[in-house]
């Protein structure tokens, strides 16, 4: 059996359904990202898993035990919020000890040692006597994680844990959190609206939209074979086109640009060149389909080809990379 099983969870706020018949399983030790646009119900789902909110119907099994009506304090999880919610009147050390003090079976020396171990794990030992406001955003984030795992919870919930940080720190923390999670092997559920975060960190991604799950799969499958038009559009960029009755999709970087026209090649006109550093995104117009295509090419190649507005391009769509959708 899976570590966490969610069965037929439904939740309404007044007239609005925020979760509609949600089913999923999460395995011991994996890191799962719940990804979706704001308002898709992902945060409510996390809060239901945490016991901070109750569902209107459905069941939750944690470690094979029906936990649907288990109060949050008995669920044995750790949680990190976007705001970190570090107690501002306590030092880093005190923040971590605050929870540990509930463990009556530990002596105070043991608690202190445990807290220091946690701080070592997130590399914050030297900051233990500082107050949260004296720390950088990334350090606060790591303190919150140390606090969450200090009580040896059986699973960890992360609610948009990186959204408040700037891009550089975010990228660094992604790897750090992932490494830490692997090291202690804790089952982790993370809610995010950032597709890049989900792709780089997760073992599996659950894509949600409008109160339902669109797709559950590993990052590669999600990216290469998005199950619905929504998933394709939400994660990365997808060009859509019709082929007979079918709707097809192709990622911008999978489109081949050839120098010489051959039959079956698609003619496209360059409309705009969007320089993105290593590669350049070409906004093009397909007269035959009367639609717009994005094409990503290495910037070097774009320069060599001396592409300009209104240059004619010849495109090939490799069959193995084209995704088929039922309309």
């Amino acid at each position: 059996m899976s570590f966490l099983e969610i069965k037929n969870i439904t939740k309404r706020f007044g007239q609005q359904t925020v979760l509609s018949n949600i089913n999923m399983n999460i395995e011991q030790g994996e890191l799962v990202c719940i990804l979706g646009p704001s308002g898709c119900g992902k945060t409510t789902l996390l809060r239901i898993i945490a016991g901070l909110e109750t569902a209107d119907s459905g069941q939750i099994f944690i470690d094979s035990r029906d936990s649907t009506f288990l109060p949050s304090s008995k669920r044995n999880f750790g949680i990190v919020f976007q705001s970190y919610a570090l107690f501002p009147n306590m030092t880093v050390m005190e923040n971590i000890l605050f929870g540990l003090k509930q463990k009556k079976e530990m002596t105070s020396a043991e608690r202190k040692k445990k807290a220091l171990d946690m701080l070592n794990l997130v590399d914050l030992c030297e900051h233990q006597n500082k107050y949260p406001r004296q720390l950088s955003g990334g350090q606060q984030q790591r303190t919150a994680i140390a606090r969450a795992i200090a009580l040896s919870p059986s699973y960890l919930l992360l609610d948009e844990p990186l959204s408040a940080l700037d891009a550089k720190v975010r990228a660094k923390l992604r790897t750090e959190i992932r490494a830490l999670q692997r090291k202690i092997g804790i089952t982790t559920i993370m809610v995010t609206h950032d597709q890049e975060e989900a792709l780089t960190m997760a073992d599996r991604i659950i894509v949600m939209n409008n109160a339902v799950i669109e797709q559950i799969a590993n990052p590669h499958t999600i990216y290469n074979y998005p199950a619905s038009r929504f998933v394709a559009d939400f994660i990365g960029t997808m060009n859509f086109y019709n082929e007979g009755e079918a709707m097809r999709g192709i990622r911008p970087e999978k489109i081949k640009v050839v120098e010489h026209w051959e039959p079956h090649d698609i003619k496209a006109l360059v409309k705009e060149l969007e320089f993105k550093g290593a590669f350049t995104r070409i906004h093009s117009h397909i007269p035959k389909e009367n639609s717009e295509f994005f094409i990503d090419l290495p910037s070097e190649r774009v320069e060599n080809m001396k592409l300009q507005r209104d240059t004619m391009l010849f495109l090939q769509i490799p069959e193995e990379h084209a995704v088929r959708y039922s309309v």
Partner: peptide, 8 residues
């Protein structure tokens, strides 16, 4: 909520 999760 954090306190609740820590069983405080």
């Amino acid at each position: 909520m954090v306190a609740e999760s820590m069983n405080i």
